[in-house]
Simulated assay, not measured.
Amino acid sequence: VGYTNAGKSSLLRRLTGADVLIENKLFATLDTTTRKIALPNKQPLLLTDTVGFVRKLPHQLVEAFNATLEEAALSDFLIHVLDVSQLEVMEFYNTTMKVLTDLGADTKQMLVVFNKVDKISDPSALFALRRHFPDAVSVSALTGEGMDELVERISEFVARGTMTVELRLPAARADLLARLHRDGTVREVNYEGEFTDVVAMIPTRSLEVFAEFLAVPSSEPVDAAAPASIA
């Protein structure tokens, strides 16, 4: 997420290699775009590029604009991209946060990214911003600077949102097993009469669905996990 022209589409393209529309104008991205990548630990990840936020949006466009941002409200965590080459960067940040608050997404985990650091001529400006965002990652989607650190930080965020579980499902509930395959990563399946024992990695948001079938939680690390979703 982020203010319009912050470089979200460029960042998505840099991370995924996807052919994403990139233009230097308002609303270059008019719809959400989602791409799947694999992190270094083989963890799959869904990245969504949302429409850029803007101040003083005409009233007749507010509803349509907010409808395109539903992905942000449904995501596991957010990457908030800031164009640090702009003098109004804090004003743009506040505008974005207001929209996220209206969507009920302002309390989600958020990774702040300082984009376009290649355009910074005065290092003191970046230093001042770091007082507000000490954990931000500095990158340039144009040159690739800082991308390794960004991927590492994204991996840390994803790890917080998944867990390995052991489940005992009724054999007749094939729908639950199908959902595990769809939403998570199934590591082991054993058919035991009226039950199906499953070891799977699932997003923590899905735990409520499977809570009554939970056998023994497992903390064992895995090589592949359920796709997390970020905007």
Results as ranks from 00 to 15, higher is better:
92 F>E: 15
103 L>S: 12
128 A>L: 08
156 E>R: 13
154 I>E: 01
92 F>V: 13
131 R>E: 15
111 L>C: 04
172 A>L: 06
72 A>E: 03
229 S>P: 00
208 E>D: 07
176 L>G: 07
127 F>T: 10
211 A>V: 06
204 T>R: 10
87 L>C: 09
51 V>W: 05
95 T>N: 13
127 F>R: 15
40 P>A: 05
202 I>R: 09
23 E>Q: 13
58 P>Q: 04
17 G>D: 12
214 L>S: 07
164 T>Q: 09
174 A>L: 14
163 M>R: 14
137 V>S: 09
40 P>C: 08
201 M>L: 12
146 G>A: 13
82 L>R: 08
7 G>K: 07
181 H>T: 04
80 H>T: 01
102 D>R: 05
71 E>D: 10
118 D>A: 00
59 H>I: 10
189 V>G: 05
120 I>T: 03
11 L>A: 07
195 F>G: 00
31 D>G: 01
182 R>T: 01
193 G>I: 01
161 G>K: 06
208 E>N: 09
16 T>K: 02
59 H>D: 09
87 L>K: 13
228 A>W: 02
82 L>S: 09
39 L>M: 09
30 L>C: 10
120 I>L: 14
140 S>R: 02
145 E>Y: 11
28 A>K: 05
135 D>T: 06
116 K>M: 00
90 M>L: 15
49 D>R: 04
125 A>R: 15
189 V>H: 06
10 S>L: 05
140 S>K: 04
43 Q>I: 03
221 P>D: 00
